[in-house]
Design a protein around this nucleic acid. Structure first.
Length: 296
DNA sequence: CCTTGAACCTGGGCGC
DNA sequence: TGCGCCCAGGTTCAAG
């Protein structure tokens, strides 16, 4: 589920319920996810007011009034759900569908906010996600945050930057774009989509987009534009809805309806006049989808 | 430094 | 109905 656009969608969904709210009680249903929960997790969170909900790459950052910060990563299957106390229950399918997953509700934040009480539930069947506590002062130097590359949404991502990072790299473009130390927040889906958009082959080496003197080749600009466009469109659409991904308010994201390559093996390429067929290959152990005809 | 592959964990889909 | 296999949005660690 969660690449950058999904995490951003989660952040926006949680913000109204969480910002300004006080954690009355923290409920944990197991001792760990991918890592053990922080020492005295509940004690350190209970009674604290949430002052800010931010995102860096695929990390959700929950800031408290005492300067502590909860770093939350959703792994492959993590999701948050807001249960507004006292609001009219959404009837039917949504509650019904969700109930079967209750055994994977691992953490519940009981909140008392300016707009009344609510529960924020973290669910994660595969438990690749995790939660850690750090301080505002130590955040930038935290090992998980320290080495992250630029956000794909801002001006820091430009052809000159990529040229510098790609120079001399023999690894495939696909792997280079998945490297969180270069561009932070891209994942398997959006890398495939961006490469299709830029007409670049995932198998081409990253270094092939840089001249010997270290300057960006013209097509590197296409790649920058493609990454920006794909990520912006995905955020706009509220994240993708692969399998059971839902926005925090329970509605489904719908970006999946516009995938040009991801999970489209065998389908005709959607580029006008291309006539190619989408192919699936495996690169560094993960599926890559692309059109061998128009992506070069 | 570089790269690939396995590992972590559960669930869904498919072939038999 | 069930079993076994493969696959899945991510990241880390070991080995070559």
């Amino acid at each position: 589920m969660p690449e950058l656009p999904e995490v951003e969608t989660v952040r926006r969904g949680l913000q109204p319920a969480m910002e300004g709210a006080v954690v009355q009680r923290l409920e944990q249903h197991r001792p760990d996810l991918r890592f053990p929960f922080p020492q005295d997790f509940a004690t350190r969170i209970e009674g604290r007011r949430i002052v800010a909900l931010r995102r860096r790459a695929k990390y959700l950052l929950i800031g408290f009034d005492d300067g502590s910060v909860l770093i939350s990563h959703l792994g492959m299957s993590g999701s948050y759900f807001v249960d507004h106390a006292g609001s009219a229950a959404t009837p039917g399918r949504f509650h019904h569908d969700r109930s079967k997953d209750k055994k994977h509700d691992h953490v519940v934040f009981h909140l008392d906010g300016p707009r009344g009480g609510s529960r924020v539930i973290y669910n994660d069947p595969r438990r690749f996600g995790f939660m850690l506590l750090t301080g505002e002062g130590e955040l930038a130097a935290h090992p998980l945050i320290r080495d992250l590359g630029v956000e794909p949404t801002g001006n820091a991502l430009h052809a000159g930057y990529l040229a510098e990072r790609f120079a001399g790299k023999r690894s495939p473009l696909k792997a280079a774009l998945l490297d969180q130390r270069i561009v932070a927040g891209l994942g398997n889906i959006y890398v495939c989509e961006a490469l299709w958009q830029a007409r670049l082959s995932p198998r081409r080496t990253a270094g092939s987009l840089v001249t010997r003197s270290g300057r960006p080749v013209a097509r590197l600009e296409d790649l920058v534009q493609a990454v920006r466009t794909v990520i912006a469109a995905a955020i706009e659409a509220g994240g993708s809805s692969l399998r059971d991904h839902r926005q925090a308010d329970g509605t489904l994201g719908y970006f999946q309806h516009t995938f040009n390559t991801y999970d489209q093996e065998g389908m005709p390429c959607r580029r006008d006049g291309c006539g190619g067929k989408i192919r699936r290959i495996v690169q560094s152990g993960r599926s890559t989808y692309y059109c061998p005809v128009c992506q070069r």
